[in-house]
């Protein structure tokens, strides 16, 4: 469903992604791991359509369509969902109002009927239970005053309601304690389905104990330096990123690693 070919991405003239190839089929869960500054979040943002990033080379197809041609909202309506690493606060706009507007925009695009406030509440009840989210969070402004864990759960809740075809999770595990991590992971697992693909971006192997991936890719300095099955994550945990960073540095075109 997602075909990334030789993707090069720059921001402010600095190349971040230096030729990514990745193919995701429906039902698959792919994990992308990598050290800080390797370009993981850039990949997520580019897929969702963030403007600041400039695609200099390569292509991304989603369900046979040129994804890079679409505005962010059209990508969402076509079925791409990004769970943010840092969910954004929108003061004064209630979570329900926001999510209902989102759902109705997507339904409209699909030629489905609009849901009203009553139907919407009925619809979201069990999804809230899924991520053990308190109903008061529904009526509070989007993410405002939410704890770190509540924000991440809210992202998964949005995902559950919007039922995307491809979900991209950008470091959803960061800043979560083990209980919150488990709740988030349970939410994701219950959304795993035949027709749905996942791209799970994480720094730590920990999340992958709960969301078991079909494939693991290691991203170092803008390139996927190694791909494998779920056992690759364990190996990485064992040996650390330096193991593959050294390998990346050995390739002639590689620039100095960014950040630490």
């Amino acid at each position: 469903m997602l075909e990334i070919k030789n993707l090069h991405v720059s921001i402010d003239e600095t190349e971040i992604l230096k030729g990514i190839d990745l193919s995701i089929k429906p039902g698959q869960v792919h994990a992308v791991m990598g050290p800080n500054g390797s370009g993981k979040s850039t990949l997520a943002q580019v897929l969702a359509g963030r403007e600041e990033y400039e695609v200099t080379e390569g292509s991304v197809e989603f369900l046979g369509e040129d994804l890079l041609e679409l505005d962010p909202e059209m990508r969402a309506r076509e079925g791409i969902f990004l769970a943010f690493q840092y969910p954004v606060e929108i003061p004064g706009v209630s979570n329900t109002y926001f999510l209902k507007a989102a759902l109705n925009a997507i339904r409209k695009h699909r030629g489905e009927e609009q849901v009203d406030a009553v139907d919407f509440l009925a619809l979201v009840r069990d999804k809230m239970a899924m991520v053990k989210m308190d109903e008061t969070l529904l009526h509070r402004p989007v993410n405002e005053g939410f704890s770190g864990g509540e924000k991440k759960r809210n992202e998964i809740f949005h995902m559950a309601v919007l039922e995307p075809k491809l979900a991209v999770l950008d470091e959803t595990d960061s800043g979560l304690d083990i209980d919150a991590l488990r709740i988030v992971a349970d939410g994701v697992n219950s959304l795993r389905a035949q027709e749905r693909g996942f791209l799970v971006i994480t720094h730590y192997q920990r999340l992958l104990e709960y969301i078991v991936p079909d494939f693991v890719h290691v991203l170092v300095d803008g390139r996927i330096v190694r791909s494998g099955g779920k056992e690759l994550a364990l190996e990485l945990e064992d040996k650390g990123y330096s193991w593959l960073e050294n390998a990346a540095a050995a390739t002639p075109a590689a620039a100095a690693p960014v950040g630490a």
Partner: peptide
Amino acid sequence: FYCQSRGI
């Protein structure tokens, strides 16, 4: 961007 990424 957050709003747009939800389809709005």
